[in-house]
Nucleic acid binder design. Structure first.
Length: 507
RNA sequence: GCCCCCAUCGUCUAGCGGUCCAGGACGCGGCCCUUUCAAGGCUGAAACACGGGUUCGAGUCCCGUUGGGGGCACCA
């Protein structure tokens, strides 16, 4: 039995939850759940400038929609006391869940970072500096003009007599200076970095906030994180974190730098490259089951000869392992997502699908707002399920059930390779049949219609096309006889009458 | 400029030295089923970036080249 993993997802509240980030979150969550451990959320709001009000709430809502439950994260109280009120109904009231200690919002942990930064100074692992961003930019530019890489070291300080009570930053002291820092990454393998390449990173900013580098290390340690999963764009700064763990004398977590998700253009997924928030996927009619399945497969495969590609959440949790995570970046493929979405839609129970469809139908102007209409939708579901790839596909398939139709133009009422009078005759005969069929159900209708087709010496396609178009006003519909049965005798008769009238006059 | 990562069909991938003239899935073509559209079944085309090694033997190990990506902030 593997040890229980505790993982976290630690976004900064700077906007919507992005699918690239979601995938990392999914891997983290799967790893935690696979081992029976915990997965929690931490909000990294240490950059006051980039803070976007409402994004924490949106992040919470995203996980809610995805069905990824958190074992820890900001509670109502904490959310309310953020820079802006970020309270979310789905958040829990407990101050601590499953033993993961909070607070979970970094701006609520400031004294902790200060304390550990001072600890580093006191123990010789960090020092105070006063260079302003402007001065640093100048130094950087100068180094560049001499074609040198700018790596900040304490002897470059403009002033060395920094007193603790004046404004300053705390920088880590990278040492040994000529050594190298090595660590093992679950995905990338053994990593070696020259310390000479690592700069004396600012750990505590002038405004009293920590930088990511300090905060992530302190929090991950204090909150018992066992596996650090994050995008591999963090790889170059990982040695700084490794060094900090060693300075503090803390046990290192397992590192896992997950390859990025690329856009179709081969570039890192970002706002400008077609990357989308989970809400956009939700609004486009994708269901969370499919999105999770798809994202999990982007970079992970069961391996060992297992060629399964459709997974439920539970199956993913059961089969996920870090060994299955690949080391190369993956391109987001909408074709496959669409297919998977269809697969998972087909797996939904009718009532479940109906419930998910209702908001999309409403969006399209189809109100399913009464028990009768709901029952109607439920009757239709079995016939549209396998025709629905995205929830947005349903509306055009069902609208003629819920409202009246435009009487189709005459040319639409003439069947393939048929004359007008023949089509008209077929329609009239169908009308008589519809009036008479008993019971007015799928099978009897089919039987009668097929016989009619034979009698008229029409191919099924010919007769059925004419009738379909007349009764639905569409050329693409669910299967005809079920459609007619659900529409009901009266509606079918009325529409046939109108079609007959149209064809009579339209000729 | 410096540092780092990556490299099997168009895409996601299996492959952890021989069982691979490279398997699966999406997509694409064809056929079947068929009242439209789907769904489903069968089937076809489609890949080990290149060059050196190591080895009896390399898609699999090593080095280099090329190509892609990422990082070099008091942003995460």
């Amino acid at each position: 039995m593997t040890l229980k993993a505790r993982t976290r997802f630690a976004p900064s509240p700077t906007g919507e939850l992005h699918i690239g980030g979601v995938r990392t979150a999914i891997f983290s969550w799967l790893l935690a759940k696979h081992t029976g451990g915990e997965f929690y959320l931490r909000i990294e709001d240490t950059d006051q400038e980039r803070y976007v009000p409402g994004s924490t709430r949106r992040i919470l809502e995203s996980f809610d929609w995805l069905g990824i439950t958190l074992d820890g994260g900001p509670d109502h109280d904490e959310l309310r006391t953020m820079k802006t009120d970020e309270d979310y109904p789905g958040a829990l009231d407990d101050g601590e869940y499953r033993g993961v200690p909070g607070p979970f919002v970094q701006s609520h942990r400031l004294p902790i970072y200060r304390q550990w930064a001072e600890w580093l100074v006191a123990h010789g692992y960090a020092y105070r500096a006063t260079e302003t961003p402007e001065e640093l930019a100048r130094m950087r530019a100068e180094a560049q003009s001499r074609k040198q890489t700018f790596i900040f070291r304490e002897e470059m300080r403009l002033r060395t007599d920094v007193r603790p009570d004046e404004p300053h930053v705390i920088r880590m002291r990278v040492q040994p200076r000529d050594g190298r820092t090595e660590f093992d990454d679950l995905i990338k393998g053994h990593m070696v970095f020259e310390n000479a390449q690592i700069d004396d990173q600012v750990l505590l900013k002038m405004d009293g906030f920590p930088t990511y580098h300090l905060a992530v290390v302190v929090d991950d340690h204090l909150q018992g994180v066992t596996h650090v999963l994050r995008g591999d764009d963090w790889l170059p700064s990982a040695p700084k974190h490794v060094l900090l763990y060693r300075y503090f004398g803390w046990e290192e977590p397992k590192w896992a730098h997950v390859p990025n998700v690329l856009g179709t253009d081969g570039k890192k997924l970002s706002k400008r490259h077609g990357a989308q928030s989970v809400f956009e996927f939700r609004d486009q009619g994708y269901i969370p089951e499919a999105l999770i399945n798809f994202l999990a497969l982007l970079g992970w495969a069961p391996g060992g000869g297992d060629e399964q590609s459709v997974f439920t959440r539970e199956e993913l949790i059961a089969k996920f392992s870090m060994e299955g995570v690949g080391s190369s970046p993956a391109v987001f493929d909408y074709n496959k997502l669409d297919w998977l979405n269809g697969v998972h839609i087909r797996r939904l129970a009718d009532a479940d699908l109906a419930g998910r469809l209702i908001p999309f139908l409403a969006q399209a102007g189809i109100a399913v707002d009464t028990p009768e209409r709901r029952a109607l939708l439920l009757r239709i579901i079995p016939h549209i399920k396998e025709r629905t790839k995205k929830l947005t596909d349903a509306a055009p398939l069902v609208d003629f059930f819920f409202g009246d139709i435009q009487t189709p133009p005459a040319e639409m009422l003439i069947g393939p390779k048929m004359e007008q009078h023949l089509s008209l005759y077929a329609l009239r005969e169908t009308r008589r049949l519809v009036e008479a069929v008993e019971p007015f159900e799928d099978a009897p209708l089919e039987q009668a219609m097929r016989k009619l087709g034979d009698d008229l010496q029409l191919k099924p396609t010919q007769l059925f096309t004419v009738v379909r178009n007349a009764v639905t006003g569409k050329t693409v519909t669910p299967p005809l006889f079920a459609t007619m049965a659900i529409l009901g005798r009266e509606t079918c008769l009325a529409r046939l009458d109108r079609a007959i009238a149209r064809l009579q006059s339209g000729g």
